[in-house]
């Protein structure tokens, strides 16, 4: 029974975040500074997800060579920078991560 409340609750709060601005889109005119601010949304949110997951994969800061998440992330960033290709980046990053993890555990 609690599962029903849980899922209904999660679904409702998530939808109440996603839908309202879509519903009234034509009535919204953002002031200039706000439209400027919104262009920084994608990089800001992506960075806020990437940094903790690569720098602190187990919840504490691991700024060292024995952190495969960090090493794999650096390789992915470099490949993304050079190749500009998302698929190549994902494959290269996963391989780098796997190799680092395997070496560190061996």
């Amino acid at each position: 029974m609690n599962e029903v409340y849980l899922i209904a609750g999660m679904a409702v709060v998530t939808y109440l975040i996603r839908y309202p601005l879509f519903a009234v889109a034509e009535q919204i005119a953002f002031p200039d500074f706000l439209s400027r601010a919104l262009q920084y949304v994608p990089p800001a949110v992506l960075a806020a997800i990437i940094f903790p997951s690569t720098l602190m994969p187990e919840g504490t800061l691991q700024l060292n060579y024995s952190n495969p998440w960090l090493l794999g992330g650096l390789v992915a960033a470099l490949v993304a920078w050079r190749s500009r290709n998302l698929l190549v980046t994902i494959v290269a990053g996963m391989i780098a991560f796997g190799v680092c993890k395997w070496f560190l555990e061996a």
Binding site: P42, L46, P68, G73, A76, L86, T89, I90, F97
Partner: peptide, 19 residues
Amino acid sequence: WGLDFAMPVTFIGMLMPYL
């Protein structure tokens, strides 16, 4: 297995073009 690394790595690929 570390397969969850797929998410940060995808996001890194999406982030770089903004820089």
